[in-house]
């Protein structure tokens, strides 16, 4: 658990360097997706590395193995090809998967580690939430509870329906992504989403200058772009590496389970424990939010029953909000 943070960082480092020089590795039998800095610190610029032919360079191949080859054998991929590869794999998705998340409301105590790690991974501004922990109260006589709300990656997504340019789309593994190279910023999808799961880059994004040289990865939606929509991606980039989403693994309280419905298994991000999805939902009366809307969400909630923590929050809950007058 302790190296989670550093993993996030190294991943980002990876992408950053990868963007400086995409490299193809014929020897590894696959196109390399990211370059890796050589050990003696010549990793800051692609040119230096390529000119010193005797150096060995570590590369990460497409299938995730780390290989070492002579720098002279490296063939740089053109930036365009690299982006195209990211785009096409991002639009295709992972074959045979149907991702789903289970959120155990009885365990959430508003730590917001999920929100922080998500904002960190996706370079979001403080007010931009791909996942937002809400304070809910359904009725005057019911107990308030905390409810983390990511994108529900609906199977009947109202948002992708209305997109005029195919910028937001649903992949074969069920993930709804947004391509901010394509998005025209009409914000119809924001209006269409009944769960308010989408955010817009009204301002210059937080790390705009720093991310300038990054290649756009549609599965991470980084760099963010001004004038385009952003949303929860189920951390599609991490799933490809076999890792749980950022929010899921950041939670210290075991709130999140994540997994593949075609395997009927979900894994708890905190304990790493894997359970049968169908049993978990059946035994705990799992439900989806507002099923009457017909959106068919892929995020399930377990009711806030037998709460591990009392609701400690001195502020407004839903019921106190003016509009529930």
């Amino acid at each position: 658990m302790s190296d989670k943070k550093s993993k996030n960082n190294s991943r980002r480092e990876f992408l950053k360097i990868g963007s400086l020089f995409g490299v193809g590795v014929a020897a590894a039998g696959a196109a390399a997706y990211s370059g890796f800095a050589s050990q003696d610190g010549h990793g800051t610029s692609g040119e230096t590395i390529l000119s010193e032919s005797e150096q060995k360079i570590k590369v990460l191949t497409e299938d995730g193995t780390l290989a070492e080859i002579k720098a002279s054998e490296l063939t740089p991929i053109k930036k365009d090809e690299y982006t195209d590869a990211l785009q096409s794999q991002g639009r295709e998705g992972i074959a045979g998967k149907h991702w789903a998340m289970v959120i155990d409301l009885s365990r959430c105590r508003n730590v917001r580690a999920c929100m922080a790690s998500c904002q960190n991974a996706h370079h979001l501004r403080d007010e931009q939430h791909h996942i937002n922990v809400l304070r809910m109260q359904d009725d005057r006589n019911t107990e308030p509870y905390f409810m983390p709300k990511p994108c529900f990656h609906c199977d009947n997504p109202p948002c992708t329906k209305v997109c005029p340019v195919d910028a937001t789309f649903k992949r074969q593994d069920g993930i709804v992504l947004i391509d901010n190279e394509r998005c025209i910023g009409c914000r119809f999808c924001i209006a269409a989403c009944p769960y308010s799961a989408r955010v817009f880059n009204w301002f210059e994004p937080k790390d705009a200058e720093k991310d300038e040289e990054l290649l756009y990865n549609v599965e991470l939606n980084v760099p963010q772009k001004k004038g385009t929509v952003s949303k929860c991606l189920f951390s599609a980039d991490r799933l490809r590496e076999g890792k749980l989403p950022y929010c899921v693994s950041a939670c210290p309280n075991g709130v999140y389970y994540f997994g593949d419905l075609n395997e009927d298994a979900v894994t708890n991000g905190t304990s790493g424990e894997t359970v049968r999805f169908s049993e978990l939902i059946r035994q705990n009366a799992g439900y989806t939010l507002m099923p009457e809307l017909g959106t068919k969400p892929n995020v399930y909630y377990l009711p806030p029953k037998n709460r591990m923590f009392p609701f400690e929050f001195k502020g407004k809950t839903t019921l106190d909000d003016e509009h529930h007058g």
């Binding site: 149907h98 109202p158 992708t160 329906k161 195919d166 074969q172 069920g174 075609n262 395997e263």
Partner: peptide, 17 residues
């Protein structure tokens, strides 16, 4: 065997163009 949804091949209002 699971019966996966073939989201990519479905002709639907939400599908790609």
């Amino acid at each position: 065997p699971a019966h996966p949804n073939h989201f990519k091949d479905t002709r639907a209002l939400w599908a790609d163009r």
